[in-house]
Computed example of a mutant assay.
Amino acid sequence: MKQYLLSVYQPGGGSPGPEVLGPIARNLEILEQEMQDAGAWVFSGGLHSPDTATVVRVKDGDTLMTDGPYAEGKEHLGGFTVIRAPDLDAALEWGRRLALAIGLLPIEVRPFQGEVDG
C-alpha cells in the first residue's frame, strides 16, 4: 500500500479558544481510532506555531540557520497525519473525513514517492 500525507493548513494568528478546539480534539480522537482500526493510520502530530521554526540551509559551503518559517504566508502547516491506503481514492476519503472532523481548515492529500509497504 502507498503512504499518503494528509496536511492540515491553518491561518496565521492565534488559535481558537477551548470552546472551538475541544470538539475538534474529540472528533480527531475518534477519527484516529477509526483509522487505526482500519489499518490506515501510521502516525500524526500537531506542530507548534511557525515562529518556533528554524530554517537550515547551505550556501557556499557554509551552514546558515535563521529563526522563523522558511516562507512568510497567510497559512502554515499546523499538523499532519500519515496514512496507508490502497489508492488515491481511499486516501481522499480519509482526507475528506479529516476535513469534516476539523471543520474549519483545508486538508492537502499527497502521496509519498514510490510504493511503500507497511
Results as ranks from 00 to 15, higher is better:
T54H: 02
A53F: 02
D51L: 04
R97F: 10
F80E: 05
F112V: 03
G12Q: 15
A99I: 01
H48T: 09
P23Y: 03
G73Q: 05
A40H: 06
P50R: 04
R110T: 14
L104W: 08
E75S: 07
F80R: 11
G79E: 00
T81N: 12
E93L: 14
A40E: 04
A71D: 00
M1K: 14
A38Q: 11
G39K: 04
F80Q: 07
T52F: 02
E19W: 02
V82K: 10
M35S: 14
V42P: 01
W94H: 01
E115S: 10
L98F: 12
L92G: 04
A71E: 02
S49D: 13
Q3A: 15
H76L: 09
R110G: 13
E93W: 14
V8W: 08
Y4F: 13
S7H: 01
L100F: 15
E93N: 15
F112Q: 04
L21M: 15
V8C: 13
W41R: 11
M1Q: 14
V20W: 00
L98I: 07
G103S: 06
V8G: 12
E115Q: 13
T54P: 06
E19C: 02
G22M: 09
E29L: 08
P106S: 07
G61I: 00
T54L: 05
R26F: 00
D67K: 12
K74E: 07
R84A: 08
H48K: 10
V42G: 01
R84Q: 13
P111K: 04
D62K: 11
A38H: 13
M1H: 12
A85S: 13
P111N: 02
G118H: 14
Q36M: 07
P86E: 12
